[in-house]
Design a protein around this nucleic acid. Structure first.
Lengths: 203, 203
DNA sequence: GTCTATACCTCGATAGAC
DNA sequence: GTCTATCGAGGTATAGAC
């Protein structure tokens, strides 16, 4: 973009767009609502981002960029398996708690717009499961762990962490949990999910 | 609606709307695309359903109605816990496999449109966790199970079943799994998730 | 850089023939 | 019941003043 830009205004617009897109999805979002939320007028959105589609791209990359890397940062480390699990569960729950719309937004956009995938995982490094695969193999050989494929390991763990946020409205109704009990419910998951997961790995 | 109706045409439209709404979400769906998919013209959609919003309501109720009841049908039965788990995992995975968009669609609509909740869970009966709560208490007292709150039990189990479908595009990229390997990955989950879950409950 | 005013167009909805 | 043709609201995008 050849335009001169006020970065502070640009950030305000991007933050407002983030909030509105996450709440309504790209198709359901209105440029007017973003402008209102940012305290500017519609024309400025086009001045800074060119079009709704380009603004949506920027927001999606931002959202996916906070969702995925902090998962794989922890999983790829060389720390022992148990320590990684015990660290990931509370860390990620604390991250998602103030961002309840983030996972559904990202997954919905990926379904409706699969081309977005290339943008997100382009700079992705080598297969991220190698460290974990060796750690599991060693623990199994030492008789300390039941065998499990590393893919299943990761998906089981991430499922239990992320799914409750995606299903929150349904779970609140099905479990008869009002919004304040929901916080206690998440606290309990924060405390118990790692234990539950590690218990499943006992030989 | 006081209109006379051709039920076969109405069903074709509803099925087409189901497909299009699930793929793009309510806001992203176009009445023209639904008409094309059903092999009729736009005007007929209004003849049968009145408006896009009403058609969207019908589709959402239909989708939520296949997603939730078959979960709680199994969980509320009087069968032993282990049997319920071993039945639910393959049954539900087989159900979702040909409907990969269903969970994300429902959860996204519930986030963007929380009022829909009332429509879905209105006819819901009494608290559905009572059977499970007693079964867990008995098993724990008999020394056969680690203690766990029934809410956490259900959410852990359902998370591992449903989440992979919601996150499929991301998981395929992150795990380096191409679409045909994805089927094998789901087969493995179908075989292993119940064992994994039950292993976590061992005392 | 930021605003107001407006052009342009997509899309949901309706009218009316058959 | 189903179609063609068209209207009008609402939304993105642009022009141009400041």
């Amino acid at each position: 973009m050849p335009h001169p830009q006020d970065l502070e205004t640009r950030d305000r617009i991007l933050a407002a767009a983030h909030a509105v897109f996450l709440k309504h999805g790209t198709a359901g979002a209105r440029m007017q609502e973003i402008a209102d939320e940012a305290g500017v007028n519609k024309a400025l959105l086009h001045y800074y981002f060119g079009s709704k589609a380009l603004l949506a791209d920027a927001v999606f990359l931002r959202a996916a960029g906070e969702l995925f890397p902090r998962l794989f940062g922890i999983l790829q480390s060389d720390a022992p398996v148990e320590q990684k699990v015990r660290q990931l569960v509370p860390t990620y729950i604390d991250f998602l708690r103030p961002r309840p719309y983030l996972p559904v937004y990202v997954m919905h956009e990926l379904h409706a717009h699969p081309a977005r995938l290339s943008g997100v995982f382009a700079e992705q490094g080598p297969a991220p499961l190698d460290v974990l695969r060796r750690q599991i193999a060693d623990a199994v050989a030492a008789g300390e762990m039941r065998p499990i494929a590393p893919e299943q390991f990761v998906v089981n763990l991430v499922s239990m962490i992320v799914f409750p946020f995606m299903a929150r409205p349904a779970l609140q109704a099905l479990l008869r949990v009002d919004p304040e009990q929901w916080d206690a419910f998440l606290d309990e998951r924060r405390r118990t999910v790692a234990d539950f997961f590690l218990a499943a790995l006992r030989p």
